[in-house]
Write a protein that binds this DNA or RNA. Sequence first.
DNA 1: CCGAAACTAAAGCATTTGCTTGTCTATTTT
DNA 2: AAAATAGACAAGCAAATGCTTTAGTTTCGG
Lengths: 103, 103
Amino acid sequence: MLNQQSLDLAFQALADPTRRAMIERLSLSPASVSDLARPLAMSLSAVMQHLAVLESSGLVVSEKLGRVRTCRIQPQALSAAHAWIEARRAEWERRASIAWGIT
Amino acid sequence: MLNQQSLDLAFQALADPTRRAMIERLSLSPASVSDLARPLAMSLSAVMQHLAVLESSGLVVSEKLGRVRTCRIQPQALSAAHAWIEARRAEWERRASIAWGIT
DNA sequence: CCGAAACTAAAGCATTTGCTTGTCTATTTT
DNA sequence: AAAATAGACAAGCAAATGCTTTAGTTTCGG
């Protein structure tokens, strides 16, 4: 259904460089919260709060085993954002080609 | 160069439903600030503040002629966001196909 | 010229965001 | 068992966000 709320959450999640770095890391392989935190210049707590944002947007899921929480990306959650951007570009191109007389 | 800052600004701009509505409107044709405001349930001032966000992200440009400011989208400004998402998906798929043994 | 239209600028305000620090609980490791 | 590791939970705080209202300025139509 591609509703507003899910786009809000996805774009909002992607708007922060720390969260994008976390997704970039997770696009290589799953990782623990500590793994995600290691290269970042902030507390583990802060990283867990970013993770919460990523999880509530559906971009990342995680699962705890023993004392380690393992996080992985949910690439299909990027589709809504991707589709929205593509739709705008497509509409713009359609309109542009009419303006150029290339019907 | 696709720097962090420009991605921040683009995704941040896209994270608000009002701003996405404005871009959707502008993907059909250029419009004045009042045109953009008409369907929105908020003051003209608020719409202009959203416009400022869109302009500072480069997604929209505008030009004033007489008393009317005409806004248009800059579809190439969506490319950075689009490319970032595609890159993550591509990386994930590369990794997934290795995991599946489909080298 | 006069009033409406289309912005523009600025101040104020409630909420959200992105951290911090401190405390606490499980789970491993030694 | 003791200590270290990995995370969870909460409170607090400064800054950013998304509005509002008020008070302009400039331009256009009659």
